[in-house]
Design a binder for these strands. Structure first.
Lengths: 122, 122
DNA sequence: CGGCATCCGAAGCGATACTG
DNA sequence: CAGTATCGCTTCGGATGCCG
């Protein structure tokens, strides 16, 4: 570890990808989970609320709007007597799912080690 | 997209990896960037502040403490007349860097598309 | 140099109630 | 059903000042 390249002057600039990723993942705390909920196909609004521990409609809406603005999720209103809205991954969103899954796989593999570390540090 | 497996009852349970990942990435908004700053080797406290846009010492400390508690970063005090503290990735932390890099690579590849989406949605 | 203590405004998010 | 509106608590994080 001797090739200590100098750090960039400004990693906060808009153009740095690592700025975007944590931001997208954490647009709000539910975003990543919402993406994974859409993994198997479109889901309705109230359908999403259940596995997300009864998240408040307001907060879920915020999350979905954020994902929509980012082009990761699409929103379609199906015609009918009762309102019926479905959310689905866009191709872009589906692409993000892969690195997200990689991160999750990492977490699963190192689960014990992570928990051990947290116990060791009081 | 016809195999709509039912969603799990509770994706919020402690044991779900996707809970941990957003949490780790977003422990605070700097965590991911700090990890990337340590990519090339150990760095001193004040050395980290520069590329992070002069982040406040308090906040940087919080971030580092969080990463330390998670076992991702180590903190070593080098003996000498003046205080000199170095932070470095642990093997565990280095492992996380890979999925993190994958996510960043995704962001870099789909940069234009993401920005386009944000512009289209007012 | 590498922090910690304090203050404070801003943002996050849950609960509740209401609406087309 | 799929949201919006309002409230209030909690957390985040920037600014400032002090310390060994």
């Amino acid at each position: 570890m001797t090739d200590r390249r100098p750090l960039p002057r400004d990693m906060f600039e808009e153009v740095c990808p690592s700025r975007l990723v944590p931001f997208r993942f954490g647009d709000n705390k539910w975003s990543a989970l919402v993406l994974r909920c859409l993994e198997d196909g479109p889901r309705r609004f109230s359908e999403l609320r259940v596995p997300l521990h009864r998240v408040t409609p307001k907060v879920l809406t915020q999350s979905l709007r954020g994902l929509e603005r980012a082009g990761l999720v699409s929103r379609t209103v199906r015609p009918g007597p009762a309102p019926r809205v479905e959310y689905a991954l866009t191709p872009l969103g589906r692409g993000l799912l892969e690195p997200l899954a990689a991160a999750c796989a990492w977490a699963a593999e190192n689960w014990d080690e992570i928990l051990d570390a947290r116990e060791r540090h009081p």
